[in-house]
Simulated assay, not measured.
Amino acid sequence: MRNFKEKFKLKLAENNYKFTRQRELIVETIVENENWHFNAEELFEAVKEKDSEIGMATIYRTLELLEKLDLIHTLDFNEESRVYELYIEEQHHHHLICKGCGKLVEFSDQGIEDFEKELEAKYDFCIDEHKLKFFGYCRECRDK
């Protein structure tokens, strides 16, 4: 994940943004929790433990910038909150989302990737992105 920080620095420079201490701390916090799906408030709480002077506005601005630079993705699972995750090209995956408790499960499936290739061939179409989300109920919520 160290290269993520370097990638961030490079993208900032390419787009004429400064690499500030606040941005560095926010990115480090995200990277420390690399398998973390987080919302802005959770990130704020984690960053605040390291530097109480960083405000919520800085968190939102940095998340916006990270998304603009294609370093994180917003996952819109429900209307109540936006959830973010690191965007790592080599780790394409999909999500199972529990409508009861909000639990997120990541999964990869070669069959879906093969299906994408079939669609491209069948329709002479170049797919450069897809997002697949399944909604339902986890075992714990079904057992309640």
Score class of each variant (00 low, 15 high):
Leu119Tyr: 02
Leu119Ser: 09
Lys5Glu: 15
Phe135Asn: 08
Lys131Gly: 07
Leu63Asn: 00
Cys101Arg: 12
Glu89His: 08
Ile72Tyr: 06
Glu42Val: 04
Glu28Cys: 04
Glu113Ile: 11
Cys126Gly: 14
His95Pro: 02
Glu6Trp: 10
Phe4Met: 05
Gly55Tyr: 10
Ala121Glu: 15
Lys144Tyr: 06
Phe4Cys: 09
Phe19Val: 13
Gly136Phe: 14
Tyr84His: 03
Leu12Lys: 11
Tyr87Asn: 14
Cys141Leu: 13
Glu67Lys: 00
Tyr87Gln: 05
Leu71Ile: 05
Ile30Trp: 01
Gly55Ala: 00
Asp109Thr: 07
Glu41Ser: 09
Leu69Lys: 11
Glu34Met: 06
Leu69Pro: 13
Thr58Gly: 01
Gly102Asn: 05
Leu86Ala: 00
Gly102Phe: 09
Asn16Ala: 06
Glu28Ala: 03
Met1Asn: 13
Asn39Asp: 04
Arg61Val: 08
Val105Trp: 15
His95Phe: 13
Glu129Gly: 00
His37Ile: 06
Ile127Trp: 12
Lys7Asn: 08
Lys133Ala: 03
Glu118Gln: 13
Leu43Ile: 06
Glu28Ser: 10
Phe19Gly: 02
Phe107Asn: 04
Val47Glu: 08
Arg21Glu: 07
Phe44Thr: 11
Thr58Asn: 02
Lys99Arg: 09
Gln110His: 15
Gln110Met: 12
His130Asp: 03
Arg61Thr: 10
Ser81Ala: 07
Tyr84Ile: 08
Leu96Met: 09
His92Leu: 13
Lys122Val: 09
Lys50Ser: 07
Ala57Ile: 05
Glu85Lys: 14
Asn39Arg: 01
Glu120His: 03
Gly100Ser: 09
Glu53Phe: 08
Arg139Ala: 13
Ala57Asn: 14
Arg82Phe: 11
Ala13Leu: 12
Tyr17Trp: 01
Asn15Ile: 09
Phe4Lys: 05
Phe115Lys: 01
Glu64His: 01
Phe134Asp: 00
Ala40Ser: 08
Leu25Trp: 02
Glu32Met: 00
Lys131Val: 09
Ile127His: 10
Leu12Phe: 14
Lys48Arg: 03
